[in-house]
Simulated scan of single mutants.
Amino acid sequence: MIFLQLFITFFFIGLFGFGGGYGMLSLIQGEVVHHWHWMTTSEFTDIVAISQMTPGPIGINSATYCGYTAVHNAGMGNAMAILGSITATFALVLPSLILMILISRMFMKYMNTSVVQSVFMGLRPAVVGLLGAATLLLMTSDNFSTPSQNPWQFWISTALFAATFVGTMYFKINPIRMILYCALAGLLLLY
Rank of each mutant, 00 (worst) to 15 (best):
F3R: 02
F3T: 05
Q5M: 09
L6C: 03
F7E: 03
I8N: 00
F10R: 00
F10I: 04
F10M: 04
F11H: 03
G14L: 02
L15I: 03
F16Y: 10
G21L: 04
G21H: 09
L25N: 05
L25V: 11
L25G: 00
S26Q: 09
Q29K: 15
V33T: 06
V33E: 08
V33F: 07
H35W: 07
H35T: 14
W36M: 14
H37L: 06
H37R: 09
T40M: 07
T41M: 13
E43R: 02
T45R: 06
A49I: 06
Q52K: 08
M53F: 14
T54G: 10
T54C: 11
P55H: 08
P57A: 14
I60S: 11
Y68M: 09
T69Y: 02
T69F: 04
T69I: 09
A70Y: 01
G75Y: 12
N78Y: 07
A79W: 10
M80V: 12
M80S: 13
A81D: 04
T87R: 07
F90N: 06
A91R: 10
L92E: 11
L92C: 07
L92F: 06
L97C: 14
I98R: 11
L99G: 04
L102E: 02
I103T: 06
M106G: 10
F107I: 03
K109H: 10
N112R: 12
N112F: 06
V115H: 10
S118M: 06
V119F: 04
V119K: 00
V119Q: 00
F120G: 01
M121F: 08
M121N: 10
G122K: 00
P125F: 05
P125S: 07
G129L: 13
A133N: 12
A134Q: 02
S141C: 02
D142N: 14
N143I: 06
N143E: 07
N143V: 08
S145F: 05
Q149F: 08
W152V: 11
S157I: 05
A159N: 12
L160F: 14
A162K: 07
A162R: 04
T168C: 15
P175H: 13
R177M: 15
I179E: 10
L188A: 15
L189H: 08
L189Y: 07
L189T: 09
L190D: 08
